[in-house]
Design a protein around this nucleic acid. Structure first.
Length: 586
RNA sequence: GGGCUCGUGGCUUAGCCAGGAUAUAGCGCUGGCCUUCUAAGCCAGACGCCUCGGGUUCGAAUCCCGACGGGCCCGCCA
């Protein structure tokens, strides 16, 4: 419950009472935050016109005359058919600042809900390094998880590792049969193809993917290799423990590389769940039996089982959702059902962060769970694909930017900036800050765009450190920190009468909105609201900073420093929620 | 062929779900501001038939219908 909620409730009560006075009890109306400058909340009176048989302006005038400013309502006015309200600035200022001082980093966070959330994200196939197209997934997923925690939920993040299927088998064959020399040669060609002169980096995922590329080529050109891989596939399907373990082991090595990359951008997952587990423990088979027993189940002439989902809103020429092959073995989707069943034993609500290509699959999954009698279904957050200006990202066509390269480039760029402006700073310190700043630029650039919008990756934008960017927010944090350091000890002063500058009142109003933003970003899954808020906050701080001399302000010094500290506290939490560091200098 | 989704200044983008007053911000552009708390900054300015056409409404960027343009999907793949 924020002060804005209280304010809104007071307006609601007053307007209801006034309407009752006017003999129109119980009429519905809305209280909305106003876009007009100098107005906080408004009740549009146009919808009331019909019921009251009067002009909107007249109604607003009438209502305004019946409502006296009291409590949080400082001013009531009738303008153009709107009933406008202003919040008591003193109450807003005092309660906001006191609350931030009282809560510290937890300001804006909501009380424990007791709800267990499971956020599955990233889950890329362990067959190659993460490229910027895939990077949207961990960044959205990790940010959402951080927001949900602040909404009071218990959140677990999870990566579903696909260690079953042809791709990982091919990878495994490559790792065991392709020589280092062959891989190195392929690596060189590949780097030339994607237009880079450097050597492919010495990191497990990059090393292994070279062997995967070679294996794929050999499989196409050499029937003997094709046969070996098919044989492995057969043994895998039959449950040959040796093959299954080898494949899993390979996937684990690959995953080490991916985990390292994710760690670079501050994404750490709580749990890794292996797809092969659901074959081993028989739960995928149990799903098959359950679905077979349903009235929607059927079998093709070849013996493959499916459920028909035409009654579940699945459209198109093929409404059948197949869950076994004709030989009775399970499919990826069958295992995914077992996986979701498992997740529901560990969490109350599931969120899957998925590429938009998974939309139909996700719907089918939900329908199948419904058929099996699940009362709760997973929720999905879809994001549109990332492409490059030259077109769709594709490792095969050599149109690709690896996340590792993007991070390196951003950090190098940040290092240049620091070196330019901070003479005499130690090399070590500069590197440390560059890392934090570069990563922030990368994450911010991706999270700032609404997930459902298509995203064209541009180096120019990703390496932008100005304006609406991660480093911009960090810069403000650093500014606040150095100012507080220079100020030394001071007493908190939240006396509202000391805050009179428009820029400081604006800043405080923005601070007061943080909880609402977290609720939108978390519970409403609108993750992109958070970077927008961060920019708004940082921008307001910079305006304040430019307009008011803070350290030399006599009787207002403590009050202003208090505001700087409060802004710093909130901004630090915004940065943390975005998975970005909050440097004290830069 | 069918389904889903996006379309907002030169470029990127908020607002759309819960319709309201002058459509948000950034990049880029023009001009100004560092002997004063970090100029990764601040201030001022130019730039918009909110893709198009209908409809609903006192009122539409927002809701409905239709077109056009981009993306994604319609495997006994994962």
């Amino acid at each position: 419950m924020t002060i804005t909620d209280d304010f809104q409730n007071e307006i609601r009560e007053k307007v209801s009472a006034a309407l009752k006075d006017m003999g129109s009890e119980g009429i519905d109306f809305v209280v909305e935050s106003s876009t007009m400058e100098g107005v906080d909340m408004a009740v549009p009176c146009f919808p009331l016109a019909k019921a009251l048989r009067n002009a909107p302006q007249a109604i607003a005038d009438d209502l305004a005359s019946r409502i006296q400013p009291a409590g949080l309502i400082a001013k009531v006015a009738s303008v153009n058919g709107f009933l406008n309200f202003n919040i008591d600035p003193e109450a807003l200022i005092k309660s906001t600042l006191d609350e931030i001082i009282r809560c510290g980093p937890c300001y804006g966070s909501m009380p424990k809900s007791g709800i267990r959330y499971n956020v599955e994200h990233t889950s890329t196939n362990p067959t190659g390094p993460i490229h910027v197209g895939r990077a949207r997934n961990p960044i959205i997923g990790d940010t959402l998880a951080r927001c949900l925690k602040r909404c009071g939920h218990d959140v677990t993040t999870e990566y579903y590792v696909n260690d079953v299927g042809k791709q990982v088998v091919v990878l495994t064959w490559g790792v065991n049969n392709v020589s280092d020399e062959e891989a190195a040669k392929n690596s060189e060609e590949h780097m030339k193809e994607i237009g880079q002169n450097e050597k492919e980096r010495d990191k497990t995922d990059h090393r292994l993917v070279a062997k995967y590329r070679v294996a794929n080529k050999l499989m196409e050109s050499d029937p003997a290799v094709q046969e070996e891989i098919s044989d492995m596939m057969r043994r895998f399907e039959q449950g040959d423990k040796e093959v299954i373990d080898t494949v899993r082991h390979t996937a684990e090595i690959m995953l080490d590389g991916l985990r390292e990359t994710l760690g670079q951008i501050n994404v750490v997952l709580d749990r890794y769940t292996w797809e092969s587990q659901y074959i081993a423990d028989g739960s995928a088979k149990a799903i098959v039996e359950k679905l077979k027993a349903s009235k929607y189940a059927g079998q093709t002439d070849d013996g493959a089982w499916y459920v028909d989902l035409k009654d579940f809103g699945v459209q198109g020429k093929n409404t059948k959702f197949t869950f076994t092959r004709s030989d009775g073995t399970t499919l990826y989707t069958t295992r995914d059902l077992a996986y979701h069943q498992d997740k529901f034993t560990r969490a109350d609500r599931l969120i899957d962060v998925l590429g938009e290509d998974q939309k139909l699959g996700s719907k089918q999954l939900c329908s199948a769970l419904e058929i099996m009698g699940f009362d709760k279904l997973p929720d999905a957050l879809f994001y549109a694909f990332v492409s490059l200006p030259e077109g769709k990202m594709s490792t095969r066509k050599g149109v690709v930017v690896y996340l590792d390269d993007l991070i390196d480039e951003a950090v190098a760029r940040a290092y240049e900036e620091i070196k330019k402006r901070r003479e005499g700073m130690s090399e070590e310190k500069m590197m440390e800050i560059a890392k934090v700043v570069g990563v922030a630029a990368v994450r911010f650039n991706i999270i700032r765009v609404q997930p459902e919008k298509q995203f064209v990756f541009k180096w120019e934008d990703a390496l932008n450190f100005d304006g609406n960017s991660g480093p911009y927010l960090q810069y403000v944090h650093a500014r606040a920190c150095t100012m507080l350091k220079k100020a030394g000890e001071f007493e908190h002063d939240t006396d509202a009468s000391k805050f009179v500058e428009p820029s400081e009142i604006n800043l405080i109003k923005i601070l007061s909105k943080y909880e609402e933003v977290l609720r939108m970003a978390g519970d409403e899954k609108k993750v992109h609201m958070l970077p927008a808020y961060g920019h708004e906050l940082a921008s307001a701080f910079n305006q304040y900073y430019a307009a008011v001399s803070i350290l030399n302000s006599n009787d207002k010094r403590n009050a202003r420093l208090t505001l700087v500290e409060c802004a710093k506290t909130v901004l630090a939490d915004v940065l943390d929620c975005l998975g970005m560091g909050a440097p004290e200098e830069m």
